[in-house]
């Protein structure tokens, strides 16, 4: 069983015996937010907004704080991008919908792909996977095991092969098979390595030779326990590949993943999926309200 302490429990404890939101309450709020990896800048932004509301509404009591807090955080996740997506649904098209998955080492890219494949397949889609991580030891075998588990085809070459060439093969094969969705795995890479980041741009442009509108989605996977470095990750991967969606993994642990609040606010990239375990069903569509709720539960 998990032993997370509820943020609201903490807040309630902090404000016992108080009837108004004062500096001490706001200080406590700051601690709680920063401890969830929300980061100093975003935390100050949230607190500023609350302070404004407090001074506008002189009689705001602590009992209203919880509701307002949730509202303000949800709005940071909301202001930027549209609505939550409906389900594991894809736009109608006569070409395969191509998803390229990127991120730093060990965040959960390959596992997320396995889970996505399972969900898309369960939703009746025809899925093809591409093993374009040709670098890490046994990365291809790992994705092969996932493909077997989910029972979807995998296009692969040998370790050390050119990842762009694997991506090209995968799209060609998917197109020939009339697949609905293609998911391309890429090797983990730290965002400060210029050559490796350029390789991603190359994979991306090669795919266009097969499907001119590809990739339709560049999914950046972030580890839910990562701290403020996730900002740099979002920045550099966006620069190299125009990231269009985020997946946040490992939220089954004690880390809160609060860093995505600031990221989605600053980069206007929606969080699409959350990983909550290592099994194939352990992926969920990100729901703002639920996320904010769980941040506080």
């Amino acid at each position: 069983a998990k032993t997370k302490e509820s943020v609201f429990t903490k807040i309630s404890r902090a404000i016992i015996g108080k009837t108004k939101v004062d500096d001490e309450v706001l200080d406590n709020l700051e601690e709680i937010l920063i401890s969830s990896d929300v980061g100093v800048e975003t935390t100050l932004k949230i607190i500023e907004r609350i302070e404004k509301r407090v001074s506008a509404d002189k009689y705001m009591g602590t009992s209203e704080l919880n509701g307002i807090l949730k509202e303000e955080i949800a709005s940071l996740l909301e202001e930027n991008n549209s609505n939550d997506i409906a389900d594991f649904d894809l736009p109608e098209s006569n070409e395969p919908y191509v998803i390229m998955v990127v991120g730093v080492n060990g965040v959960g890219k390959t596992t997320t792909i396995g889970k996505l494949a399972w969900h898309f397949k369960a939703a009746g889609k025809k899925v093809v996977l591409g093993a374009a991580d040709t670098f890490r030891a046994a990365a291809i075998d790992q994705l092969q095991i996932w493909a077997d588990r989910v029972q979807v085809p995998l296009v692969k070459q040998v370790m050390g092969a050119d990842p762009a060439s694997v991506a090209y093969d995968t799209l060609s094969s998917a197109k020939a098979q009339g697949a609905d969705v293609v998911i391309i795995d890429t090797a983990g890479r730290l965002h400060n390595k210029v050559n490796l980041m350029n390789e991603l741009s190359k994979i991306k442009s090669v795919m266009k030779k097969v499907v001119p509108t590809a990739p339709h989605e560049v999914l950046l996977v972030l580890d839910g326990s990562t701290g403020q470095n996730a900002f740099e990750q979002a920045k550099q991967f966006t620069k190299a590949t125009e990231v269009s969606a985020l997946a946040l993994t490992k939220l089954d642990g004690t880390a809160k993943g609060g860093v995505v609040i600031g990221i989605s606010d600053q980069f206007k990239i929606p969080v699409k999926y959350i990983g909550i375990g290592e099994k194939m069903e352990d992926l969920q569509i990100f729901r703002r309200r639920e996320f904010v709720e769980s941040l506080f539960s």
Binding site: I34, S35, S36, D37, V104, G106, D223, S225, T226, G227, Q228, N229, A230, G253, T254, A255, K256, V259
Partner: peptide, 12 residues
């Protein structure tokens, strides 16, 4: 431990 870990590092 991953050096990019955030506030949860202490708990873990």
């Amino acid at each position: 431990v991953d050096s990019m870990t955030g506030q949860d590092a202490v708990n873990t």
